[in-house]
């Protein structure tokens, strides 16, 4: 994989990509253990509204765990996580509130195979947001059009290609009108020719000013879209910088090693 691969071919419209002073996510002193294994060590991270953050690092470094903690798919044991001013604790109300503000896309899409594409997209709006069905379907169609697959609405996930499924997954999250989107290696289960269509969708999202945290190894995407790259190793944040500096002038030895492995040939 190289930097030049999967760079968007068109000009990126940066007019909407603005970082505001408002704080979207604030993580302070967060620690997590799996049993006795110390997965996340003293994580401090502040994300402002409108930021596009790419998290990278070797496998097992805790990057997926980090973003899964943000919507409480994993429970952290020490420290605090604030999302939009709401603290994540075992309080169910807070969890519900945060989950409906934070959308997430998974490596393996996790579409519901027993529901049609449209039903996948309307399930949560109807049952969680209590949107009337008709309205929910209209919204869903709008987002399906945005990810360019409105014609598949009545098919089942099993009938779609991987790239299409991932775009549906993105549309499904968007239907909940989240203010923050988390991506957990959205392209690593895809064939090369499908990666681009998913990345294009994500770029479009970034252009609209969505706050995004993205675990990915697509360095082309990071350079083009991200405003900050975070490198993690052994459960801790080792280096963070804006993309140009990060790639051209890495400071830490570990970062250099990682970059040479992932970009080298």
């Amino acid at each position: 994989m190289s930097v030049t691969e999967n760079i968007p071919t068109r000009q990126i419209d940066r007019s909407q990509m603005k970082v505001s002073d408002e704080i979207a996510i604030e993580i302070t002193g967060m620690n997590k253990w799996f049993g006795t294994f110390h997965v996340l060590r003293d994580i401090n991270l502040t994300v402002q509204r409108g930021e596009r953050i790419v998290v990278c690092g070797p496998s097992g470094s805790g990057k997926s765990t980090l973003i899964r903690c943000i919507n409480r798919l994993e429970e952290h044991q020490k420290g605090t996580i604030m999302v939009d001013g709401t603290e994540l604790s075992s309080d169910l109300k807070n969890i519900d509130k945060i989950r409906s503000e934070v959308g997430m896309c998974f490596q393996h899409f996790n579409l519901f195979p027993h529901l049609t594409i449209l039903e996948n997209c309307t399930l949560a709006p109807i049952w969680v947001r209590k949107t009337p069905k008709k309205e929910a379907e209209e919204t869903a169609m709008k987002f399906l059009e945005k990810v360019k697959i409105p014609e598949q609405a009545n098919k089942y996930p099993g009938q779609l290609s991987g790239g299409q499924q991932q775009r549906v997954a993105i549309a499904r999250s968007l239907c909940m009108k989240p203010r923050i989107m988390l991506f957990d290696e959205p392209t690593s289960a895809l064939d090369p020719e499908m990666i681009k269509e998913v990345l294009d969708t994500m770029i479009e999202l970034a252009e609209e000013g969505m706050t995004m945290i993205c675990v990915t190894h697509e360095m082309g995407f990071a350079q083009a879209v991200a405003n900050r790259v975070i490198f993690m190793d052994q459960g801790q944040i080792v280096e963070q910088n804006e993309p140009k500096e990060f790639f051209n002038n890495p400071k830490s030895e570990r970062t250099k090693l990682f970059l040479s492995q992932i970009l080298g040939h």
């Binding site: 989950r99 997430m104 393996h108 996790n110 499904r172 909940m176």
Partner: peptide, 27 residues
Amino acid sequence: VSKGQSEASFALGMRPNRTMNLVILPQ
């Protein structure tokens, strides 16, 4: 039913009971 299914459902903001009824059991 893979764990990802319930995770996806949780990530969409659904409660465990509803996840069981609408996502896990039908599958």
